[in-house]
């Protein structure tokens, strides 16, 4: 039931009340109905308030535009915040080169290592950048997505993940793979021109 139906229903009820109490007089009817309605109209939700504000009233077009602009700005900020929080998941949904590695304001490059390992007790990354010494990944959200951002100068790097002691050399987000000691290493280029870093 929409608001117009509500209003009609309340008007009918108010008028019916005037008739049934035998106090029907044209004088003052509008005022009495208005007074009664003001006590019955439910307190509007935020959305109702917003609609009243942006409705074409005497407040003027400038005020409406200002409200719309501020609302849009709030949504943009919220979107950016949520997008930033969900970045590891977005990595798996594509666009990996845009956020897999990054350049800081000072020009330093870094690599984001992401490994989906639900239920794992420990996840680490080893590679030629750390002398094949494990650098731990973390899963603060307990969502099974383990991540670590490691500052790395531009270059080509070979690496593998170690999940609960088992080597995992084929990162789905890698730029390529090479054979090594009968297994695989993932390869990633950090600091590629036009690849986000």
């Amino acid at each position: 039931m929409n608001n117009e139906d509500n209003l009609e229903r309340m008007l009918r009820a108010s008028l019916r009340h005037e008739v049934t109490r035998d106090a029907f007089r044209l004088e003052g009817l509008e005022k009495r109905v208005a007074t009664e309605l003001s006590g019955r109209v439910p307190r509007g939700s935020v959305w109702d308030s917003l609609k009243r504000i942006i409705a074409p009233t005497s407040r003027g077009r400038a005020a409406q535009l200002a409200v719309v602009g501020v609302t849009a700005l709030v949504f943009m900020v919220l979107g950016a915040f949520i997008g930033n929080r969900l970045s590891p998941i977005m990595v798996f949904n594509g666009g990996r080169h845009s956020i897999q590695s990054a350049v800081s304001a000072s020009g330093e490059t870094s690599a984001l290592f992401v490994m989906p390992a639900p239920g794992a007790k420990s996840v680490a990354v080893v590679g030629d950048f750390n002398g094949w010494t494990p650098t731990p990944l973390s899963d603060p959200n307990n969502d099974g997505i383990w991540t670590a951002r490691i500052p790395l100068p531009p270059g080509r790097y070979e690496y593998a993940f170690i999940v609960d002691g088992h080597w995992w050399g084929q990162d789905p987000l890698a730029d390529g793979y090479v054979h090594s000691f009968g297994s695989y290493n993932s390869v990633r280029y950090i600091g590629r021109v036009g690849k986000g870093a």
Binding site: R156, Y189, I190
Partner: peptide, 10 residues
């Protein structure tokens, strides 16, 4: 070519 196209080419 990959290495030469890095922002700081190796």
């Amino acid at each position: 070519e990959n290495l030469s196209q890095l922002k700081q080419p190796t």
